[in-house]
């Protein structure tokens, strides 16, 4: 899809950035609308959410497929928060926390690591594609890493195609 909004709205045309598209959009426009995965991201307030803010203040572009929910700690991501969107048809879930050793609450990310590993193993075991769930440590200073992660995840999910749960009614 080209960028109809850019052509239509003078406010946007004023920005030269519209022409200089970031790498992730560099593919030639195809007649078929591209599949746009929906990613729900749970980011810890202290590291990854702040890192995402930094990506913003640094104007680092990344695909708009990610929708962020702010939590206080990656250690407070309940398995249900991951399961619910997956069963409802979200294409991916990203959990972002502080690097090991940097948790604002001392050890929340270590607990999150175990919990996520268990959850992914259970999903895999249950025949549900666990590769749609990503856990990443991204610090407050890693705006670029946040943008790269979202870009990479979007590409990965685009490749993978829509979550079959999106149309599976009997779950």
């Amino acid at each position: 899809m080209s960028d109809p909004a850019c052509e239509a709205k003078p406010a946007c045309e004023a920005k030269p950035a519209c022409e200089a598209k970031p790498a992730y959009e560099a593919k030639p426009a195809s007649p078929e609308p591209r599949f746009e995965p929906k990613i729900v991201a749970f980011l810890c307030n202290w590291c990854t959410y702040t890192g995402a803010d930094l990506a913003g203040t640094s104007r680092i572009q990344y695909p708009p497929n990610v929708r962020i929910i702010r939590l206080m700690c990656s250690g407070s991501v309940d398995p249900t928060y991951v399961l619910k969107p997956l069963l409802d048809g979200a294409d991916g879930v990203l959990i972002g926390g502080c690097h090991p050793g940097d948790c604002h609450y001392q050890s929340g990310n270590y607990k999150a690591r175990r919990r996520t590993i268990a959850l992914k193993e259970i999903l895999r075991g249950a025949g549900i594609d666990e590769t749609r769930v990503w856990l990443r440590w991204i610090s407050a200073s890693e705006g670029q890493r946040f943008a790269d992660t979202v870009t990479e995840m979007t590409e990965f999910l685009r490749e993978k195609g829509p979550n079959p749960m999106r149309t599976e009614w009997a779950v």
Binding site: P100, Y110, R113, R114, I117, A118, L135
Partner: peptide
């Protein structure tokens, strides 16, 4: 397992 952890385990996860 889920109420305990080691700092040095699954070091590659998340990185």
């Amino acid at each position: 397992p889920l109420i305990t952890f080691k700092e040095e385990e699954w070091m590659d996860v998340g990185e």
